[in-house]
């Protein structure tokens, strides 16, 4: 469904520095599946999502190479008219912050129907009503009519987040991109929203890209997982496999940093140091300055993405053997 080939992106900062924010990303999302993208803030995961949806501000782009293909059509380099046909209609985007992504002066009905009118300017009122109602039902509103004419501030945080989902679903897109849609929400509400998103994939056959820094959430919703670090794809493959036995040291550290609920109480293990700025990446492996297992070779050369016997891909010279990661999150 979606194919990203060797995609790189370099930005020009206001002070003239060139920032390589994405480097040689190759990914595929099969139709009807969910790809989880995990990584810390600054790892480039949202930048990739914005590029897939054509929402990235072109003014700061210094160089871009590689290809993004969606449903057989190349999106990279498309003109605005083409983008408009895809965005909203075939690619739905769920934004992170419902408070800033919604217009405070528009009612729920106006916000959601705006997408419909943008694509079908002459749509009949009854049809639009029907679409809006259906989208709200799908997003988990049990009684949509009650909230149609509410403004965002009159809704609770959870309902606003659902309204965002309804906005993304109203044109029945083939691909949904969800950028941290459940961050800073209560666990129970998260579980509900994840179930609703999962239903879109399983019952309606939609494809999804789900971005989060929380591997627990990603495990609950995704089939495949891509782990980003510092603009590079460090590990990708089946979510279960990766979480059961991470092969890249960064993935293993990310798993160990998750707070757990197992009987013995242990503090999550912090990763020392912090994510380097895009123009100060180590010249060898991007993770070499924080990695517990880094060797001389890691600091010198950047590892390419290699396939492991079980089918996943890892960008590491010394991928972890399974027993090292066996103490990790997943037993599912």
């Amino acid at each position: 469904m979606l194919k990203i080939q060797d995609f790189s992106l370099r930005l020009r900062a206001t002070d003239g520095r060139l920032l390589p924010v994405l480097e040689n990303i190759s990914l595929e999302v099969p139709a009807g599946r969910c790809l989880g993208i995990a990584g810390e803030s600054g790892s480039g995961k949202s930048v990739l999502a914005m590029n897939i949806a054509g929402l990235f501000p072109e003014a700061v782009v210094s160089a871009r190479s590689g290809q993004i293909e969606f449903a057989g059509q190349t999106l990279t380099g498309a003109d605005e008219a083409t983008w408009q046909k895809f965005r909203g209609r075939r690619i739905g985007f769920i934004f992170q912050e419902p408070m800033t992504a919604m217009n405070p002066l528009m009612t729920l009905y106006d916000q959601i129907s705006e997408t419909v009118y943008a694509h079908e300017a002459k749509a009949a009122r009854e049809q639009v009503d029907e679409k809006v109602r259906r989208a709200l039902l799908r997003a988990g509103f049990s009684d949509p009519d009650r909230f149609l004419h509410s403004y965002p501030h009159q809704l609770s945080g959870g309902m606003r987040q659902r309204a965002m989902i309804a906005m993304a679903l109203v044109m029945e897109p083939d691909l949904i991109i969800a950028d941290e849609p459940t961050t800073a929400i209560d666990a129970e509400l998260q579980v509900q929203l994840l179930a609703e998103l999962r239903a879109q994939i399983e019952n309606e056959g939609r494809t999804m890209i789900f971005i989060s820094h929380d591997l627990g959430v990603i495990r609950a919703v995704s089939d495949h997982l891509a782990v980003f670090y510092c603009g590079c794809l460090v590990e990708n493959g089946e979510t279960r496999q990766i979480l059961a036995a991470p092969a890249h040291p960064y993935t293993a550290d990310l798993v160990a940093a998750l707070p757990r609920l197992i009987p013995e109480r242990k503090l999550p293990v912090a990763i020392p140091g912090s994510l380097p700025a895009p123009d100060r990446k180590p010249s060898g492996c991007v993770y070499s300055d924080r990695c517990r297992f880094a060797q001389e070779k890691c600091r010198r050369e950047r590892p390419g993405s290699e396939s492991l016997p079980d089918g996943r891909k890892v960008a590491c010279f010394y991928p972890l053997k399974n027993e090292v990661g066996s103490s990790s999150v997943a037993k599912a």
Partner: peptide, 9 residues
């Protein structure tokens, strides 16, 4: 982020 969260804890 979870990794930073662990540092602060």
């Amino acid at each position: 982020d979870v990794s930073v969260q662990a540092q602060i804890l």
